[in-house]
Amino acid sequence: MKAYGNPESLARAEDQVLLEVSPEGVARITLNRPEKHNAMTVPMRRRLMALVHQCEADDRVRVIVFAGNGKSFCSGNEINEDWGQRQPGTRRMSLSMANRYASDLNYGRQAFSQAITRCSKPTVLRLHGYCAAAAYFMIGTRCDLVVVTPSSKIGALEARFLGPAGAVSATHINRILGTKAARRYGYSGAVMTGEDALRVGLAHRCVPDEGMDAEVSRLALRLARRSPAMTHYLMKRVRAAESLFETNVREVNGMLFSHFLQAAPDEAHFWTQVKASGVAGALAADKERLAKATGDAGAAGSAPGRAHMQGMVGSP
């Protein structure tokens, strides 16, 4: 699979997603980008997936704990990121690239959210602060046992500004919260507190902030100390039942389309141009930008339909 990212994000990913394995067999995968509330870059997601696979293959690992450094578990995907999603000179990510993004990096059978839901070892989430957007979709609602505090802030909060409310139709979220709660939180982009999460069935435990580490350790150690054969049996049963229950159905909706709809910086510029010089002027400027980006001097010269557009739209 192609390694997407930019030179900086690729270079930093190893330090931004950390793995420790305790002598008791508790693997702890920690997001470590606290200055950005652990927003996940594309290389971070790829590294996270690789670490889940590494834990899966490591017989010492009995249970996997996900955690985040700093004020929040994770604010979601890094949306202000150039990871190679657009060809030079194009305004939007192509549908083909969006499909690769959704399939390989997020929701497909080989992507990291399904690496968690198909993991044969139990997973525990230490959820403090924000667990928003993609973090909610791809980790928060995928881990087996979720520990929260009353101050946790959870949900598809991006629905407020990013377009479609994928959390409304996601199968696994409906299975966890129930359909009414999934729709209420999904449509509104409302914050779910830790207490709400316990009430609607997302969280297994809600403990005070100061008790979080002790509770996560207690749960993880208890799982780690169980008979490995029995844990393996129970996890096989859980995963088989989840599969019959169709919770791993690929969620094409939210992430794919919301990213597809995102305005890139030059698209925002296009609409600024429209205000200044009308659609025709903006199209002309766009052609010039395209010509510069692609080195095609001829592209700027003829703009099909330009006169027609001018006639239709007129002056600003």
């Binding site: 046992l145 966890i176 919260l177 799982l223 129970l234 919770t247």
Partner: peptide
């Protein structure tokens, strides 16, 4: 519901 069932099994 899904997570409560998992909590019952694994908790």
């Amino acid at each position: 519901r899904l997570n409560r069932a998992k909590g019952w099994v694994l908790g």
